[in-house]
Amino acid sequence: MTDFTVLCMQHGQDRVVVELNRPQARNAINAVMVSELHEMCAALERTPKILILTGAGTDFAAGADIAELRERGRDEALAGINRAVFDRIAALPMPTIAAVEGNALGGGAELTYACDIRIAGAGARFGNPEAGLGILAAAGASYRLAELIGKSIAKQVILGGRILDADAALRHGLLADVVDTGEALAAACALADRIGRSSPLALRLSKAVIDAAGPHPLLDDLAQAVLFESADKKERMTRFLEKRPS
Rank of each mutant, 00 (worst) to 15 (best):
A176R: 11
I89C: 03
N82P: 10
S142Y: 13
D177A: 14
L37D: 00
I163C: 11
L201V: 09
D59F: 08
F126M: 03
K49G: 05
A213P: 04
R194Q: 13
D87Y: 03
G161I: 11
G134T: 08
A141C: 07
A231V: 15
E183W: 04
D193T: 08
E19R: 13
P200G: 12
D87W: 06
M33Y: 03
A188K: 00
T54C: 15
A184W: 00
G73R: 11
Q224E: 14
A202G: 12
G132C: 01
R244A: 04
A141R: 05
Y113L: 13
I89R: 05
F126Y: 07
A188L: 02
P217C: 04
G55C: 09
E101Q: 04
F4R: 14
F228C: 15
R15E: 05
A139C: 10
V179A: 02
T2I: 07
I149T: 02
H216F: 13
E242R: 14
K155S: 15
A213S: 15
M40P: 04
R236V: 01
D221Y: 13
L185A: 12
Q13Y: 04
E235N: 00
G132N: 09
E76F: 07
R72K: 12
V6R: 01
L201C: 03
C8W: 08
E101I: 00
I163W: 04
A223K: 11
L170R: 12
S142H: 14
L37E: 01
R88A: 10
A90C: 08
G160N: 07
E110R: 07
L111W: 00
A84Y: 00
K207V: 10
R197L: 09
A184H: 02
L78C: 11
L218S: 15
N128E: 10
L201Y: 04
L219E: 05
D167Y: 14
V85I: 03
D180P: 07
T2D: 09
A225L: 10
R46I: 07
R118M: 12
D211K: 15
A109N: 05
T2N: 06
Q24R: 13
S230D: 06
I117T: 13
G63C: 06
L222R: 15
A187K: 08
E71H: 09
D116C: 03
G121R: 03
I89W: 05
E130L: 09
L78M: 14
